[in-house]
Design a binder for these strands. Structure first.
Lengths: 119, 119
DNA sequence: TCACTTTCTTGACATATGTCGAAGAGGTAG
DNA sequence: CTACCTCTTCGACATATGTCAAGAAAGTGA
């Protein structure tokens, strides 16, 4: 597991692969994309993300997210850390609270990558 | 884990939620979407999918997929079953071989769901 | 400093997931 | 029918993942 993931924009598109080029996804790109998809592929994290997206500034503090899903605070923390690790959110401390903000470009990049050339 | 997943089209968009409606993703929708993302979130399965997408008819038989990623046949079978379970591919027997074909609409639907309203 | 709030880290645990070898099921062809 | 080919299922195993309780960090305010 690499410490820092390659930029989302650098991932070759999953389906719009350069038509003439060698077919297939390199194992490296496949791994990078899979790591991001894994970060998204959890119902709790999806709910947290969507809640943030629906807030002004697309952000929310931990105290506000915990009651949303019925889980312990350490568990919420764990999920937020995963989202942050995948570059899907950024965190910022304000006084006693910690705010997490969505990085819409990151989610976009993943969606783009999944788009088929046949669209 | 539900036996049959709800149709992809029925998933409420992750970020373009009806503006006036209650914010958030229902736990049910979150689970359904997470199950599909989980099916995608594996480097081996991504490589298999992309290979199929690059073939004429967007399909490939198991014997052709096994040498692609260096894994045993039972393992390939396992991954293909996951893709099929998520509705991302369909399988068809032809003589001795079994062909798996991508369902592009399914991948589309997931990408759409991830699209932000701010696009 | 001390008490209090909010959040995170650690350690432990159960479950889920990816992998393989061996054996079974479905189909073809002598 | 028998041998063979392709693919899947089964059983086992190691690793990864999600969860919590307990305690540590970081910050505020008396």
């Amino acid at each position: 597991m690499p410490k820092t993931l390659p930029m989302l924009q650098d991932l070759s598109p999953i389906c719009c692969a350069p038509l003439g080029s060698s077919s297939g996804l390199s194992p490296g790109d496949a791994l990078a994309l899979a790591l991001r998809l894994k970060a998204l592929a959890d119902p709790v994290r999806l709910q947290l993300l969507v809640h943030m997206l629906n807030q002004p500034g697309q952000e929310a503090c931990t105290c506000e997210l915990a009651p949303l899903v019925e889980l312990s605070e350490p568990t919420i923390s764990h999920h937020l850390k995963k989202l942050e690790g995948a570059g899907l959110v950024v965190k910022e401390r304000r006084g006693m609270s910690v705010y997490y903000q969505v990085v819409p470009e990151a989610i976009h990049a993943i969606a783009q990558t999944l788009h088929l050339k046949c669209c």
